[in-house]
Structures are given as C-alpha cells and as structure tokens.
Design a protein around this nucleic acid. Sequence first.
DNA 1: TTGTACGCGTTATCAA
DNA 2: TTGATAACGCGTACAA
Lengths: 345, 345
Amino acid sequence: MKKAVKDKMGSNTILHVAEASGLSPATVSRVMNNHPYVKEETKKRVLDTIEKLGYHRNNVASGLRSNKTKTIGLIVPRISMFFHAAVITVVQNHLYKQGYNVMICQSNDSLQMEKDLVKTLHSTRVDAVIAACTLQTTDFSHFDLLMKSGIPVIFYDRVPMQKTSAILIKGDDVRGGYLAANHLIELGCKRIAHISGLLSCNLYLDRTAGFEKAMKQNNIPVNKDWIFHHELTYDNARRDLEKIFKKSKVPDGIVADNDTSAIAALEYAKEIGLNVPVDLKIIGYSNDPRSAIISPSITTIEQYPDLMGEKIVKVLMSILSRTNTEDVLQEPTVIPVQLIRRFSA
Amino acid sequence: MKKAVKDKMGSNTILHVAEASGLSPATVSRVMNNHPYVKEETKKRVLDTIEKLGYHRNNVASGLRSNKTKTIGLIVPRISMFFHAAVITVVQNHLYKQGYNVMICQSNDSLQMEKDLVKTLHSTRVDAVIAACTLQTTDFSHFDLLMKSGIPVIFYDRVPMQKTSAILIKGDDVRGGYLAANHLIELGCKRIAHISGLLSCNLYLDRTAGFEKAMKQNNIPVNKDWIFHHELTYDNARRDLEKIFKKSKVPDGIVADNDTSAIAALEYAKEIGLNVPVDLKIIGYSNDPRSAIISPSITTIEQYPDLMGEKIVKVLMSILSRTNTEDVLQEPTVIPVQLIRRFSA
DNA sequence: TTGTACGCGTTATCAA
DNA sequence: TTGATAACGCGTACAA
C-alpha cells in the first residue's frame, strides 16, 4: 500500500483515510459514494475515521476521474432583474439539495460575454447549462459547443426561435400580451399604445402577437404611431411618452412589456397632470416589486418565476438521470401567466 | 509518445493537439499558460492546431494538477437583496476579466446552510471565499476550515466582531446611523424612533451606536418604547408602528435601518392619515430602488455597493498574487456612506 | 527551447 | 464484500 503523507496544508486524501482505517482507498471511495456493496460495519469504520481526520472529498479529483463535476452552469442577463433573481434562487436551492452546485454567470446582456461564458462553462466541464439569453442573441450556435460535448442545455424565458436540440421552457407570452391588451379593452380603452421590445426576441414577438390578437378580436385599430419596439429601459419609455403626447390625438391606455416602462409611463403621466387610471390606463409586465409600491400601484402580468424554476429543475434532473444520451426534442414547456389587478388599470 | 484517441464525445485533449502539431504535450501546455520559453513560431503552430481542432482546456484536470481552480466562492444571504446583487455583479464582472469564475451561493439567511456551503466550497477547492454572513452568524468558526486549508476568506458587510485572520470589508455603519439620526434632528425632530436589527450583528450594533451618538450630542432623550431590535422585515416593522401609535405620545421621526422597514413605516403612516414628512419624518437605509419610487420618496443612506465590490476585488487579487501565505491581519477596510435626501425627511 | 516522465486525488475495472 | 491497479488530463521538474 502506498504511503500517504499529509502535506503542509493538512489536507487529507482518501489514502490517509484508507491507511488510518486499515482499509483500501477503493473501499473508502465506495463509502463516500454510497456504493451498495459495503458491509455496514466497514462503512461505520470508514465514516468514523473520516470524521476523526476531518477528511473532505476533493471534488476536483473526483470530477476528473468520474467526468462529473456536479456543477450546473447558469447564464443569465443580470441577476438584479427581479424575475431572474427569483428563478435563480429556486433553481439553486433545489439543485443544492440534489447535490449540485450552480455557477451563476451574468452576460450583462452582452452577446460577446455570453459566448465567452459558454466557452468557460465548457472548460469547467459543468454537467449541464441553463441559460436565459441576451436580447441580441438571435443566433444560438455558440451553444452547440456544449451540446456536441454531451452537455445538455436548457433555455428558459428568452429562447431560440429556430429548431434546436436544447430543452425550451418559456412563459406564456402570447397569452400575457393578450391578457394585458384585453384588460384595457374591457375597461373601455379605445386608443391603446404598446411599448415593447425588439421583435428578434421571442418574448416581444409573442407578447405583440397576443396584443394584436386582442385588438383584432375587438375591432380596435392599431395606431402605428403608438407602437414601439426597442430595449425596454426607463429612458426609452419616457421618450416614447414624450413623442406620444406631443401629438393631438393621444391614447387612453398603455400596454408596457415590462414594469420599468410602465413605471416610466406612470411617472410621466403624473408629471403632465394626467389622472391614472381615469385619463390613462397603464399595464405592465413581470410583477416587479416596484409595481406594487408605486402609487397608483400598477396592474401587471405575473410570470410565476417559482414555477419556472421548479420546472427547470425537474426537467434537468430527468435529463441528468438518463444514462443514454437520447435527444429528446420535445415541445417547449409553457409556464402560465396571470393578470394581477391593481390600480393603474 | 502516447497515442491520443479521440473519445466518442469528440472532446480532445492536450495530447491530440501535441500529436496534430508534431510537438510534445509539455510544449502545448506551455503555450496554453503563456510560458515565456516558447519560440514564437512554435507558439503559433500550437495555437493554429488548437484552433483547428477546437480544443478547449479541461479546467478540472488543470485544477487537480495545479491546485488552482480559478474559481472564487461567494456566499451571500440572498441575491435578491439589492445591495448584494449590486456587490456581486461588480465582483463577478471584475474577477471574470482576471480569469476567475465565481460560484455564487445563497445561504437564504440560514446558518446551517452557510455551514454546508463552506464545506462544499472547500471540497470544490475554490481559490478563495468571499462571504456576507447570515444575521444569525455570531460564531464564525465554520470558516476556519477554509483558512486552515490555505483558502483566504474575505468577509464583507456582515463581518465577525471577534478577532479573525480573515480580511474584513465593511460599510461605515456608525456614520450611517449617525447621519440618519442627525438629519432628522436637524429637521427639528425631538421624538425619534429607531427600527433596527439584532445587536448580535455588527451592522445594527454600529448603526445603533451612530444613532445614539447623534441623540446624545443633541441632548435628545432615547425613549425605550420606540427602540426595536429584530429581523428587519416588512411585517415586523408594521407591528412596531402599530405599537408606537397605540400610545398617546408618538414620535415625530423614524430611523429605519433598512428600506423595507422604512417603506412599511411610510405606508402605515399614510394609512392612518399622517402627512409624511410634515407630521412624521422617515429615513431608511441602503438606497433600495423602491425607496426612490414610492411617494413621497424616501430619504436614505447610500452604501455604495460598487465601491465595496471594487475594494473586495482589489484586496482579493492582491492576496491571490502573493506567493507566500503571510497572514496579513489588517484593520477592516471601511467603505463610506452618504445621505440621499428625498421627500420623506 | 523542447521533450520525457511522473503525479495530483479520485473512481472504475478487474480479480480475489 | 474488499483490494490492487490503472486510468482521467494536465503541469512541471528534470533531462536533453
């Protein structure tokens, strides 16, 4: 048996445990991995020595040998976005219970960064990648590197619109857009503006489809001067409002595709002396905590990030437990949405 | 030379690159690590083959051999807290530029989880750990495991109050508490309440010290009925307000040690028909985005999470670049705070 | 400046 | 049920 010498850092190895317990490293390894063929008594002996020596498994060595790092990569535009923070938290907590670490990476909504992160996660040999892509990501081929290496990819929220062998989990954005527009219509709005994102992104394409469906269904004309597609920032939304209210004909309702834009609209309306919701009704999207706090509080679309997180974990675990790497190109999973009624519409 | 056979996954190794470029694996490794003693021409040849084969370094193997994972562990109560999200983002972006990954872990403010995470990060052999501890963490000895193994630990925000060989980076909470109370006093408040956290945590101990200093300096008596120490949740703060306003003598100012409590106070005040800031002045802490959006907007204490993040990275890089493991028990670094004047006080 | 050979700590395979 | 031994892919001392 090889002699095991503690290094200066005092970190033990499986060899020390083997030596101290009078067993072989293989047996120690079996105990660590809950292998069935170990006598109860032996197991106890090993666990005692592990306890006594304060041994902790070296996951790096383990990962090299077993080709499993027990680490999941997660790429997200920014963790400060409420929706993503909520999804991440659920995913991380559940996966941790299953023995997985999560490496959370922010792309800062930069495509280049996203590409870099994919390479890094590949090098890190994560067991799978979960990703919500950049708004600019229309070509998703940089993720091929992962899938070719047998690393499963799950896209959520912002997902590719082309065919892919990755798993897709998305919100019901068509319905969300429909619910929002329909709600304003039910309240009597006849002149509805839409502040949306770029149509290259599935989110805004779908929400716009829902919006248009509601308008058409109710025979309400869509005024092109009131339709905006751009990055959904506070400043952009304000500029939209300024444009809108420069003209003589103004809307009586605004569908905003995120809450930041809804907040911008609300503040602008208050500034120019409009009474929300009497003169102008506003509806947002995402149920950001701020939407509940501003006055009047903003009616918005709840996306159930917890449900989405749980679904992601469920799908992921089922993929990881599969031994054979069958491609399961299934239909995208769709998470429901719901309108949260408040005082802005 | 050993024969290198591509496995079924198509992932190649340093051996494939060596073979394909007609060089030795050692040379390829040198190129990958920017070792100086490589001829320009050779280097180019290697890089070309790497490019051609689509080779990516296996960080797991590299980590095992070099004993450096290029990964930093980050433990934080919850990423959804604005302050932490901001710190994390800065830290992660900077470290990524330096070639480090960050493993973000949430303790969910559970001490047990924090202990587990320390063990996991140890097993993962991260190169260092950055931690903002749980509110319950008064004994920090579970971090000793890391430091004994030569893994440096940096505490920020919530830091141990006992002696430690870890690095400490904290906000100027004494000054923050002082600024808050002093501001209300300058505005004429004579009866000031304080909604604070548990004194077992340095944050609230310090803010309370600052609060008391301002009160004493201005000869304003502290009314014990108006002083609260508990977890700073919305509901707890509301209960405080209810207690306060049940009595005949009521305060004219409230210092809240986070913005959630300030928001709770503000909403309660509005509900019972108080005019903020005329009847009651309220000041919060942290400059949470919600504090700017609620009306009236809340005066609060800015903690400069960006500065804190940058400082953390700077200190960390200097530790990691040190070859010898000298213990540098230095004074805690203190990040400044500033009062942000709004309309609630 | 480049190549050879070994070992990092673990797990898988095979034999006992 | 346990043990011996060979990998996993890379970095580095040493040799050339």
